[in-house]
Design a protein around this nucleic acid. Structure first.
Length: 501
RNA sequence: GGGCCGUUAGCUCAGCAGGUAGAGCACCUGACUCUUAAUCAGGGGGUCGCAGGUUCGAAUCCUGCACGGCCCA
């Protein structure tokens, strides 16, 4: 069995227990993180020491460089890495021998001592005391190359985080972005609310839902595909500025920009229209970029993206006409179909909406810099208010960056009669076999009948936004524990069985 | 769904004129009190993704399956 290293470490653990040393103690007083140490003491000159500045820190041992009676090692914590120096003279022979024998890379230790800079200028903690805080049983991945195997990184993200500093940094950026957005909205009077994830009618988007079983009521329920219709019910009820950040579920394909389980934020503002929401989007996203990077320009997969507001605005039908020469407003269904057919594209259904979506797919890639794609046709926008100047269009926009739809927004349709008609039109599509058609939701129509003020609504895909912010090529890179096919792992299974016995 | 590529030690990778496995890191033993991929000497560790087939002989060739990656729909 390829368990040699693990057995050696288990052996050390039983030796520790025999010595009455707990390999898994209860707490440690950590006064400084590695980042705080760097911030506070980075000004030291090479070889300078602050012997009276007693501090303590803790983290995972990443590397050990042993030189007989002294040793350098590196600790990693949430903030990064910090070097430590231990020698026999300072901790005594017994403690030093213990360190040499029982502390391995991968273990978690706490140290107390003072800061100094080595001859070569690296900030280091001079160890006067240390405590083993957790003995690791499994070895760390290769210290130089880290963990390269993407499958392992997805399946055992904790190892990826330990081994690859950029991974922990990426998820820190995700956290920073999410908390910035919450702060940004809260400061502007928005209220964070919650809506159900278990839905009887999955609404607010065009997508196949997940079905699950509600035993208590003996019926099927759906996981939400979007929180939209419930958030608008908040507006009907009297909330004026709300948002919700959370998971949505869509039972569809997995790709570099699609995950069945993804995070979005939806924002609704009473008495606002889609122009207001465009301004909000621009401000929120570009100030987020500036907050994170100190500039409006970032690089995504080798392309410079400039978030400086205002963003370019283009109308969907004009853009498609310019790029493809077809007019999704004027041209007949037959003409659109013929155009697609010529290019070997067959829409799942020969509805106008599906054909428009296919045409858009052909040109989506051509938008790289932050752009508002505006005024989508009514056919593909069942929840958006009709355009005030052109009834064939809606007041809708999608922010597009690097060919990715980053979100979706409209002047919300609040006319209950028209909403009902749109639902009826969608119901026909559903009947015709369009699994993504919007479901009829009569309670939502009833809510609108009580009256919803004019409202602007906006949804942003958090994962895709974080992809851009972290220069990640795949949505899986920004989801800490992405969905990966289950695999029967014989080796793991065997280990677990032997562990149980 | 289709195409291409990958799966060898805990990790990163070699090995493919078919002749029963190799390096570095990690681990163990020893030397070394300012190193940073520390260094030096020695050692242990593998059902070569799974299942078939061809062959005297398969990590290597063929087929199927699983899982993953990239590209296309």
């Amino acid at each position: 069995m390829a368990q040699e290293i693990r057995n050696q470490k288990l052996q050390k653990i039983s030796e520790l227990r025999e010595m009455k040393v707990n390999p898994y103690p209860y707490r440690f007083e950590k006064t400084h993180s590695s980042g705080q140490i760097r911030e506070k003491f980075d000004h030291l000159n090479p070889s300078e020491a602050l012997e009276n500045e007693k501090i303590s820190t803790a983290g995972r041992v990443m590397t050990i460089r042993l030189h007989g009676r002294s040793c350098f090692f590196t600790l990693k914590d949430f903030d990064g890495r910090i070097q430590a120096y231990i020698k026999q003279d300072s901790v005594g022979e017994k403690a030093y021998e213990f360190f040499k024998k029982y502390v391995d890379t991968g273990d978690i230790v706490g140290i107390r001592g003072f800061p100094f800079k080595s001859k070569t200028g690296e900030l280091t903690i001079f160890v006067e005391e240390f405590q083993l805080l957790c003995k690791a049983v499994r070895p760390l991945p290769e210290k130089w190359h880290g963990l390269k195997d993407k499958e392992l990184a997805y399946r055992q993200r904790y190892v990826d985080m330990i081994a690859n500093d950029s991974t922990i940094e990426r998820f820190r950026t995700r956290y920073k972005a999410m908390s910035f957005i919450r702060r940004f909205l809260t400061e502007r009077g928005f209220v964070e609310v919650e809506t159900p994830i278990l839905n009887f009618i999955p609404g607010g988007g065009s997508a196949r839902p997940f079905v699950t079983r509600l035993e208590a009521l003996d019926c099927d329920v759906y996981l939400r595909i979007a929180p939209e219709l419930h958030l608008k019910r908040y507006i009907v009820g009297g909330f004026e500025k709300v948002f919700e950040m959370g998971k949505n579920f869509r039972n569809e394909g997995i790709s570099y920009k699609h995950s069945p389980e993804f995070t979005s934020i939806e924002i609704y503002q009473a008495y606002a229209d889609y122009n207001d929401m465009m301004e909000l989007t621009e401000q929120m996203i570009s100030s987020l970029v500036h907050y994170l990077f100190g500039t409006y320009k970032i690089t995504y997969q080798g392309t410079e993206i400039d978030f400086t507001p205002p963003w370019r605005r283009i109308r969907m039908h004009e853009f498609i006409k310019e790029k493809l020469g077809v007019d999704i407003l004027e041209d007949s269904d037959e003409k659109l179909y013929a155009f697609l057919k010529e290019r070997g594209i067959e829409p799942e259904l020969r509805t106008r909406g599906k054909m428009i979506e296919k045409l858009w797919d052909l040109v989506e890639d051509q938008i790289v810099q932050p752009t508002f794609l505006m005024d989508h046709p009514v056919d593909i926008s069942p929840l958006a208010k009709r355009h005030r100047q052109d009834p064939r269009l809606t007041e809708r926009f999608e922010p597009i960056i690097c060919g990715m739809e980053l979100g979706n927004a409209f002047s919300e349709l609040n006319d209950p009669q028209e909403q009902l008609e749109r639902f009826v039109a969608q119901a026909k599509l559903l009947e015709a076999g369009d699994k993504e058609a919007h479901r009829m939701d009569l309670d939502f129509v009833r809510a609108l009948e009580y009256g919803m003020p004019p409202t602007g609504g906006l949804g942003i895909g958090i994962d895709r936004l974080v992809m851009l912010l972290t220069d990640s090529p795949s949505i899986r890179d920004v989801i800490a524990f992405p969905l990966v096919s289950q695999r029967f792992d014989e080796a793991l299974d065997e280990e677990e069985r032997s562990a149980e016995s």
